[in-house]
């Protein structure tokens, strides 16, 4: 507040000199005109170009951002699609594998059954042959036994008794 006293003193002192703190004169309108001119100049060289630069950058960033967002959405969509395809393929491959495994098992089972049948058949055949040979052997043996027993009889009773 001290400057108010100074100010009053100045006012008193400046009465004759035409000066003073509250000396309002042509400075006021000239300053106003000068200020308006400054507004016009700054509008031309500062606010307009720099504002355009800022707005241009804003729109540039905005378009880039939406573009990038679109691309991101597309990429995410593609990734999802690929994942789905991948899952589908995996499921298919598993089905194929399962089918192949079932086929193989079936084939193996039939093969095994066939082989067993064949083996059975062969065993039976061999058995049959064996039996035949045994029978044949037995018959020849019996014939020999007959011949031998006749010879024995002849030797014992003489040939007249027999013949």
């Amino acid at each position: 507040m001290s400057y108010w006293t100074i100010l009053l003193a100045v006012e008193a002192a400046a009465e004759e000199g035409g000066g003073g703190l509250f000396d309002i004169d042509a400075t006021l309108p000239l300053m106003a005109v000068q200020f308006l001119i400054l507004v016009a100049i700054l509008n031309a060289i500062f606010y307009k170009p720099l504002g355009q630069a800022i707005d241009g950058r804003d729109s540039y960033i905005r378009t880039n951002l939406t573009d990038a967002r679109e691309r991101l959405a597309k990429a995410e969509h593609l990734a999802k699609q690929y994942e789905q395809e991948l899952a589908e393929t995996r499921r298919q491959s598993q089905a194929v594998i399962a089918a192949a495994q079932a086929d193989a098992q079936k084939i193996a089972a039939t093969k095994i059954a066939e082989a067993q049948q064949e083996a059975q058949a062969q065993r039976e055949q061999v058995q049959q042959e064996l039996d035949q040979q045994k029978q044949a052997a037995m018959q020849s043996l019996e014939q020999q036994v007959d011949a031998l027993s006749r010879q024995i009889l002849e030797k014992l009773l003489g040939s007249s008794a027999v013949g």
Partner: peptide
Amino acid sequence: PTSDINTTIAFALL
């Protein structure tokens, strides 16, 4: 310039 009353009155009137 703002320590002169003319300037500030000019701005205030504007």
